[in-house]
Design a protein around this nucleic acid. Structure first.
Lengths: 225, 225
DNA sequence: AAACTATCTGAACGTCCGTATAAAAAGTCA
DNA sequence: TGACTTTTTATACGGACGTTCAGATAGTTT
């Protein structure tokens, strides 16, 4: 990593150089986000990212560090926002009370579907990148730190609804729910191919079907024998 | 590709050279299958495959052709067997009659879970490789040819059970079912991490939960509004 | 044995990769 | 202006990659 020009909140008189540096750093991270989302970590080259960002080769290393550091930075950059959307939805349910499984499923899935449907192509790329890495155990150590804490909150609430279900069963159905959610982004072309109709533009078009599927699935899988 | 020594069924007097060639070709394909399954296409190198197979570099090209041809060969090699298992299960249901959604789900999922649980490490590797590529639209053109025909047979049967469901809804729930199935193989580490218990050794241990989840999900998603 | 084919070896080729770095450019501050 | 810092350029390096191929080896056929 470079000199990491910190932007102190208490010193608003920004150096023009630092401002420019931050801007190009964002361009690099955005370009990396799009590239990693579209082709995966191994396939993408630093030179591709540089070209996509409109900068020269050295700039990518200067602002992004090594390829692995760049990848980790891109992954972590938007996580707090997504986690906050989910946590806020969960807190709203807890404040209201009378939580159903459908409520929980919807609170977990909808924030992701929304960022995947946003006009902002960077958020769409981020959603696609998540779909790439969460469904691959090779990246689990990174996923664990980024997403599992919030997932555990939802698991705790699910166990309150199904107190007799085993820990493994609850963890399994949550993982199946996540896999289903990600496939809406990762396998949209296949859905189109199988149905013979063109793919929907927005991931939110699948929201009802997806929430129904996961809700019905959890209810059936965790129902008392 | 090399000279492709064809083994004619009508000429059993095999050339000893061809027999040896076929044997090392199998060693190469097996090694490639394990490598691609464990690390994905881009990460794996021909030299890794050669080392894993215990042969020198040139042999991999000689028997496997280019890296892409080798990948395609490995993908296609076991497809007919898996497709036959699913088709046979479907035919048995059709002969019996009175098909339920649970029957269909079980007939589609169980063959995969079984090959993923087999003692044979090559079949396990193949199952892992499928999980890698089917959930990635980047490989859809290959997936379409290999797996979609059988998937269409199951879709046709589902539409018989839910005649009022839209084509897109049926294609969606089948894709969600497939994604859930694959995640049993691809995300077993995450399930273990979320539940706090060690991962099950066999994918078949998740069969009941998985079939319940997908059955309940389809019933809920396709139920008449 | 000799001619022939299939298989394998070992080494090389050109290309692209990630990373590092010296020097130039741009901007700030005294 | 000139000292100073941050950013950008241009280039280079060592290594690993996929692929190719002449020649050695093993096995078959006549």
């Amino acid at each position: 990593m470079p000199q990491m020009p910190e932007q102190n909140e208490l010193t608003p008189p920004k150096d023009g150089r630092l401002a420019r540096g931050e801007a190009t750093k964002d361009r690099v991270l955005d370009a990396a986000e799009r590239c990693f989302a579209a082709h995966g970590f191994a396939t993408v080259t630093i030179r591709q990212i540089a070209r996509e960002a409109g900068v020269t080769l050295g700039v990518v290393s200067f602002h992004g560090g090594s390829k692995e550091e760049l990848f980790a930075t891109v992954l972590a950059r938007r996580t707090a926002t997504l986690n906050a959307l989910r946590t806020d939805a969960l807190k709203a349910l807890q404040a209201r009370g009378g939580i159903t499984i459908r409520d929980l499923v919807d609170a977990y899935l909808t924030p992701y579907l929304e960022i995947a449907s946003r006009g902002d192509p960077q958020w769409r790329a981020y959603a696609q990148l998540i779909a790439r890495i969460v469904s691959d155990d090779q990246y689990y150590m990174q996923v664990r730190d980024l997403y599992d804490p919030v997932a555990q909150d939802f698991i705790a609430e699910m166990r309150r609804i199904y107190p007799d279900a085993s820990a493994k069963a609850v963890a399994t159905v949550l993982t199946l729910t996540v896999a289903s959610m990600l496939s809406i982004v990762a396998s949209r072309v296949r859905i189109a191919g199988l149905s013979g109709e063109p793919a929907s533009e927005s991931a939110l078009d699948y929201r009802l079907t997806l929430v129904d599927f996961c809700t019905g699935g959890i209810e059936q899988a965790l129902a008392a024998p």
